[in-house]
Write a protein that binds this DNA or RNA. Sequence first.
DNA 1: ATTCAGTATAGGGTAAACCCTAAATTTTTA
DNA 2: TAAAAATTTAGGGTTTACCCTATACTGAAT
Lengths: 215, 215
Amino acid sequence: MIRVLIADDHNVFVEGIESLLSGTSEIEVTQRCYNVAAVVESLGKVPIDVILLDISFPQIDDGLSLCEQITRLYPQTNVIALTMHDDASLIKRMVKKGAKGYLLKNTTKSELLQAIQTVHAGKQYFNESITHILLNDEPRAKKTMVGAGLKPNLTRRESEVLTLIAQGLTTQQMATQLFVSAKAVEFHRSSLLMKFSVPNTALLVKSAMDMQCID
Amino acid sequence: MIRVLIADDHNVFVEGIESLLSGTSEIEVTQRCYNVAAVVESLGKVPIDVILLDISFPQIDDGLSLCEQITRLYPQTNVIALTMHDDASLIKRMVKKGAKGYLLKNTTKSELLQAIQTVHAGKQYFNESITHILLNDEPRAKKTMVGAGLKPNLTRRESEVLTLIAQGLTTQQMATQLFVSAKAVEFHRSSLLMKFSVPNTALLVKSAMDMQCID
DNA sequence: ATTCAGTATAGGGTAAACCCTAAATTTTTA
DNA sequence: TAAAAATTTAGGGTTTACCCTATACTGAAT
């Protein structure tokens, strides 16, 4: 019997999860906690195998530090993050804090069961959605692209020139390498400055890197 | 019957993979290719379901562009990267180029079979190793600091100037902002170029961003 | 058939970047 | 306190970047 603790500050959600798991013979919902203090208290009393932990508890940092604490104090207890946050960096942070699995709240019953069993067996569990998020996690993809910057549509030549600029080549060097005149390269250079709305090469390189146009 | 093409410039490896797959009833190694040209030629003649592609073929860029080409020209053909490169950014780049799976060369037979079947069924395949690499991928921690590039020790002023350069300011603008002469700023600029061993501002910005000196 | 985007080329000009040598001052470190 | 590193300023020079106008060829879309 796998002893499960559900930690979530949304009552309805806790009940829903519990009813999902109630029909399973191998899994037992031992505890339900609606705040951090209750989780800490429960763990001190009752042995728990798997914790389904909502990260926003109520703040993200609360969930992270709680996860870290659980992992350190009760290494035999495995944490599965169960949250609506589909952010790659958050997933990584949770795993760093010791989470063995990560599920989005739109997961299915069978997936939830499989996750609990996998994690309880000492392995990590990440489904396709999570893998997909990690794969598409652009190191520099600023989701907080507040003002300005949408990635401009570059022509083939512009992309070539941009790449060469970022490699430190001068206009003349690029001209030689591309078998065109320096004036042609200069033209594309100007086009790039215009499309990125930047005044010079330095900011062009930075903007292009921020927008993933190079690297 | 799943028709498989093995693309690798290491003969021994190709033979090993083929012998691994030969005992399977559902999988048939239709083609073996030892260079990019052979792959392109084969695809034009014979329909292929799954390609096991070594990325270093012989260069990484070759494998990447070949993968892109295959995905574009033969969308029904699924590419599995099979390589010794365990670099997160490379995994992401391959997936961007259309790879449906990614296996390290220390994979097992059963995993290889499962990957081929999963990919042939139209789904992506990534095992725990790959997921683990993606999870531990520090946004900017370049483990591949091959030649040269260790982060140079910058003085306070140099850091300031570097930051302002990356914001697109000219030497004169920086001088005004820092309440010093343009010559002073020019000096720090030169120091930066020297410390980073780069010929101009463009590459300075790129290098500095790669090394996390700015952002 | 003709716009239109992309590419290439040209001349001429200003501003900025880049390189060198040289020296004085301040701050930090040993 | 002396030595080392950092900061500042300067003169003078070459190269490169950047801006403007203008023409012309190509291929793709209307």
